[in-house]
Design a protein around this nucleic acid. Structure first.
Lengths: 138, 138
DNA sequence: CTATGTATTTGTAGTGATTACAATTTTATT
DNA sequence: AATAAAATTGTAATCACTACAAATACATAG
């Protein structure tokens, strides 16, 4: 029926994560929405389907996913953390007016500077801020 | 005597900021240390010289500097904000072991992608994580 | 030089995201 | 079914940060 759930299950098992209902649903949300959600957004959406869901579970699960390298926290200076599934190199643009976050492709590997010889780089982030076209034209 | 204080005073006046003792001291700390400090670090250091200093003042002052474009918050996913004086394009590398933050030069302007045509980019951040040479060799 | 108004600083109390922890529930194994 | 292990849940605590009002320092007019 639902191929996505199957894929998620396999992905979790590969990382030694027991594919519980909550974990699958949270990962499913991240992949389907692909909207850089806050914990609040994830919780509010899923609690409709899983009335017993606890916010703590959302936190626990996201931290587990981060630890296992399935998800990474977005580095944006708001007071709320946001989360992203790990895909190939891309940066994030946040509109300072509407708050929307856009992905854009970026060849991050191209510009590792000489100064970082001898450093072991585990994670690279590129993050721009400004105004999106919608907000400029309104 | 102290040319730096003079420069800071002029810089603040240029931005229509009254150069109070606390404001000068905070800016002086940022420039001299150049260590991407947290509010805690700034407060703990300056309270020795200014015993009446309030943490609220540090927050207020940093927010004022950010508003006026003298300082920018570092975008690092810790729970504590860090601050940086505004210089030319550079990225930040945070060692996941010792927590030290290193600057490195980066030509950020070179890789603004096509997808962001029509966007107005106000601020660009590049942020890497990993291990620094010291921690690798120990 | 003093009086009055304005800006700055300060301290306390509050907010809100995140975590610690213990209890409950679910899942796996014998 | 019985027991052990893991996952989920709810509550309470923590901690960075902010709101707000009182106190202080500063500036300007008379």
């Amino acid at each position: 029926m639902d191929g996505l759930v199957g894929k998620i299950t396999a992905e979790l098992l590969k990382k030694n994560i027991k594919p519980s209902y909550q974990r699958i649903k949270i990962m499913e949300y991240l992949i389907e929405k692909n909207n850089h959600p806050t914990v609040e957004m994830i919780y509010n959406h899923l609690v409709k389907e899983i009335p017993t869901l606890s916010k703590t579970t959302v936190y626990n699960t996201l931290n587990l996913f981060i630890e296992k390298g399935l998800v990474r926290p977005l580095t944006i200076e708001d007071n709320e953390a946001r989360y992203d599934t790990i895909i190939s190199n891309h940066g994030h643009f946040k509109c300072q007016s509407c708050g929307e976050i856009y992905d854009f492709p970026v060849e991050i590997d191209d510009f590792v500077p000489d100064k970082l010889q001898g450093f072991e780089i585990a994670d690279k982030n590129v993050y721009f801020k400004g105004l999106c076209p919608k907000c400029i034209s309104s």
